[in-house]
Write a protein that binds this DNA or RNA. Structure first.
Lengths: 173, 173
DNA sequence: ACGCGACCTTGCGGATTTCGCAGATCCGAT
DNA sequence: ATCGGATCTGCGAAATCCGCAAGGTCGCGT
């Protein structure tokens, strides 16, 4: 009874201790992946339901989720389109840097208006997404704060006109 | 008694029966805003706790959250760094279009590998974020699928090297 | 071979939370 | 003045969460 799936979570994705986050290597197995998928569909889904879906007991799911949360591998949050929540100006800013890219990225990370920072290959070294209340605010962040950082060679802004898609469903496909 | 906040949720969010998401502004009142903030901190926070924080009964919070969810104003989901979850190649693609920008954006929206689509002002008409398993996959999506769309004049890719920040905390600042 | 640690399972109450529904209220529209 | 819709509050009942305890299994290092 109860057997069903289970899929013998053997000792598969062992080794390969590479790191992806900013330092540690969480190393997820297939079951945790499945749990995350469940929670990507509905962050409030009960543990028992998740357990049934991935072939684990309620208690086990609870422990796994807690650990994933504690490790910072995943977070369960509400997401919205900022435009509907009163932030009327958003922009993606492409930045070119001379010198240490990482330190500039860190400086951007510390700004509360900056939602998203990623280091890239291509004609920009960094892409940063900015969320502001209005034009003045946006202008201020870009010109006074970002361009003022030592090492920033140039920036190019892309003001958001309309958000068309925003998903959190990889793996679900 | 019990007053506290409440802030007289006047008769604002009239209509809104329409598909929010895009062009319009559902107009959230202060209470819904506060609820969203609570859920941005913890997507699983109990309704009673939220109610206490925003000055509403448990049932009222539940109804509001349900409506926000139904309207598509907000979603409660698990988020992770895709790199941690096995998607090893990501990129932002800037796209220039001739003709109807919106229809191209819609086409992008239909691709499962595309996580994020936004229409912008600036030297790109559209920015799209792509999440793939490996280089072949990424190459395939960009060259075979995106560039193949009629109306796409040119694209420029920014392959992600390292994600530095990813937040969901507007309003909480 | 043995012990240890990591992880799962089953089972179990009690505390909490969720959920549905009936009864107020408020407010604008007829 | 009154009707109707939207929203809030107040309940029980059902479901979920949470901690905990007693095993079981597997892989690994000594």
């Amino acid at each position: 009874m109860h057997s069903e799936v289970v899929a013998s979570r053997s000792a598969d994705q062992r080794d390969s201790s590479r790191e992806s986050r900013n330092g540690n290597s969480p190393q997820l197995d297939a079951v945790s992946l499945a749990i995350i998928q469940q929670l990507q569909e509905d962050g409030r889904r009960p543990y028992a339901a998740i357990g049934k879906a991935v072939g684990l007991s309620e208690a086990a799911v609870r422990q796994r989720v807690q650990k994933l949360l504690d490790q910072g591998v995943m977070q369960i949050v509400a997401v919205t389109d900022p435009l509907t929540v009163g932030f009327r100006r958003q922009a993606m800013v492409g930045i070119n840097v001379e010198g240490d890219v990482e330190s500039i990225a860190d400086a951007l990370t510390d700004m509360s208006e900056v939602e998203y920072v990623v280091m890239t290959a291509g004609s920009f070294d960094i892409l940063a997404e900015i969320v502001c209340e209005d034009d003045d605010h946006l202008l201020d962040v870009i010109n006074k704060r970002i361009r003022a950082l030592p090492g920033v060679r140039s920036t190019e802004s892309f003001v958001y006109l309309k958000l068309k898609k925003q998903t959190y469903m990889w793996g679900t496909r």
